[in-house]
Design a protein around this nucleic acid. Sequence first.
DNA 1: CTACAATTGTGTACCAATTACACCCTTGTT
DNA 2: AACAAGGGTGTAATTGGTACACAATTGTAG
Lengths: 248, 248
Amino acid sequence: MLTKDELEQFWAEGNKTYLDHISIDCVVFGFHEGQMKVLMLKSKNEKDWYLPGGFLKIEEPIDDAANRILKDRTGLEKIFLRQFRVFAAPDRTKHHNDLYHDNPFFKQRFISVGYYALVDFFDVTPTADAFSEVCTWRDLEDLPTFQLDHELIFNTALDTLRLQLSYQPIGYNLMPKEFTMPELQKLYETILGKKLDRRNFQRRMLGFGILNKLDQTRKGGAHKAPYLYSFDLENYKAALKEGLKSGW
Amino acid sequence: MLTKDELEQFWAEGNKTYLDHISIDCVVFGFHEGQMKVLMLKSKNEKDWYLPGGFLKIEEPIDDAANRILKDRTGLEKIFLRQFRVFAAPDRTKHHNDLYHDNPFFKQRFISVGYYALVDFFDVTPTADAFSEVCTWRDLEDLPTFQLDHELIFNTALDTLRLQLSYQPIGYNLMPKEFTMPELQKLYETILGKKLDRRNFQRRMLGFGILNKLDQTRKGGAHKAPYLYSFDLENYKAALKEGLKSGW
DNA sequence: CTACAATTGTGTACCAATTACACCCTTGTT
DNA sequence: AACAAGGGTGTAATTGGTACACAATTGTAG
């Protein structure tokens, strides 16, 4: 974390590096021990948490900016990222504290482009940014209070993710390379917030043709060892593009 | 249309009124004589057409800006509007002509927020903006060449609209108050670009519970007079919110 | 004023997908 | 060796979607 002076220096330089008025906020979803997680940050001086975010460099493509920001927070490149909405209420940064408001760069109005990301929990190394000293996964069942409009951004991302689940495959970016059917089902149940029938889930999932059944089982539990699966990346990508249901 | 001097004046004042780097582009869909239409503009000096658009005022909510822009082009207030994506390639305005590029306001990089709108064709009074003298409906089957990245914006809007058709009701904003089932079917067929079975369409549509059957028929054609329907606004709005299919 | 063409209203048989279950198999523990 | 906890696979019942057939209404041509 920067000192107050360093911070002021950073902001003073802001508009030489970054485009005015544009910011990016990211909702990073992970999945661990049967729980959905979101990556969040907190600075020492404040009690509220916020989402990973940043600004757009003057000549940078916006998806590159989102990737850059997330690489800094997670160590990951080539993250599954999707733009889902712009947050632009004129007063969205009004409640910021003086540290920011005294500063000419941060004082301006920001139109924030919201992205959500799906990542494999174990691949991520949460890394705090210059304005915080805590960066960690938060459980969806136990969320902290949010800064600014970040609760709205988070909720909108979750709604979008749930909606997309009904016509697009999800999981490739959230699961490890190999996984069992019950593990995948748990992911779906967690995103949707409801229980699904084990047998029907399996049939339907297999029916999509995006899974490869491996000739191995996951030993360890005091039960029958479940088979391992991996995603068939080619079919998975095709399903992403064309959707899982025909609609009309 | 403004003269060159007036135009320069307008741009010179630009950043006193408008926020830098942010623009808005709108894809306005209408429906007339069995054809899908898009509202487009053209200026005298150029052969390519462009979409209705504008800028965000310094303290204006972004949805208000989109509504304001569309009110200017169509005369309509309270249009059905939906944000669908941000267009932000750094070179997206590079191919603009000198009239614009010589100008400090327009020379800057713009991040454009894309909206699509659905309107009743007959309610619209197409009105040119300050930079054009043609503003008119263009048939989807006979589109002109587009300026800048407006073809990408248009295509993305159409894809989004088609996708939304599979899980949300559409029509309230595009149809007149009272309409017949074949007329509504024609709308769906036009958006989707394919024929649907008349009888199955009717059954499914009625199954959604968003239509009121009226005790009148539309006379005039040399055929059996079809019944008139109107939307049940309450159920329609509920369906918009919850979606038409359960998904999982 | 009657026959006709066009188009709408309604019904039904068939196939596919989803749901709700039952039964047996494997694994580690007691 | 018996048992508890889960997992693999199957099937009947229901729902939903698709592909048709047939009767009814309207304006027009003769």
